[in-house]
Amino acid sequence: MEQPIVKIKDLSYWYAAEPILDRVSLDLSKSDYIGLVGPNGSGKSTLVKLLLGLLPVKSGSVELFGQPVRQFSEWQRIGYVPQHVFRGDRAFPATVREVVESGHMSENSILCQLGLSKCEPITHALQTAGIEHLLGRRIGELSGGERQRVFIARALVSRPELLILDEPTAGIDQAAQEAFYDLLETLNKKHGITILLISHDLEIIAHEAKTAICLNRGIVYSGPAKALHDEEVIKRLFGSRVQHIDHV
């Protein structure tokens, strides 16, 4: 049997005495498209931070590609798009090319930019993300949807096997969202990239992901994403006073 890309076992986490995650276990395998959904404060972001080694594991274990997260060093195998990509100022002096090229950590970018060294190509990432026309633009001048695509392209330059996206379409208009999720579907189906999509929006996960994991400190549901429309699942996730209404 093939080794899971991510293996989380009995993971618990707490801030002071406040429990945030309670004995969470889950596996991600190659070509999975998993949607992690839960209400605000359910522990989604904490789980992602633990998964990426941004927080120390207090109880339980997290393994990436068979290695404990603390010892993991092959970060080029993971592409990460944070919740608020580029929180910097509009005046931040960086072009799309520089941001995307920063996905290649091994090469010397000064020599590359000055044309004194052969650089790893970024064309495939730009094409896949559909942002070739933005190459010379400054990152601060782009719309939210365009920025998301730039950071997807940045995540893709190292040809990752796992892509983790934390609330990637927060604050982005509907048309840009649809184009963005079409891109994720292509990356999963055509390129075989495993995707972990984190969102508080049930409808997005139900519509886009193959498998859903509902988190509310512990895992309250794990199964086909389509079942997120089921009233019982919604009650387990948000409580009995919440009713499901479809997006118009």
Partner: peptide, 13 residues
Amino acid sequence: FLLALDEDLARVS
């Protein structure tokens, strides 16, 4: 450059 762009992104890289 990456540190200036986003500290978390730098750590994950």
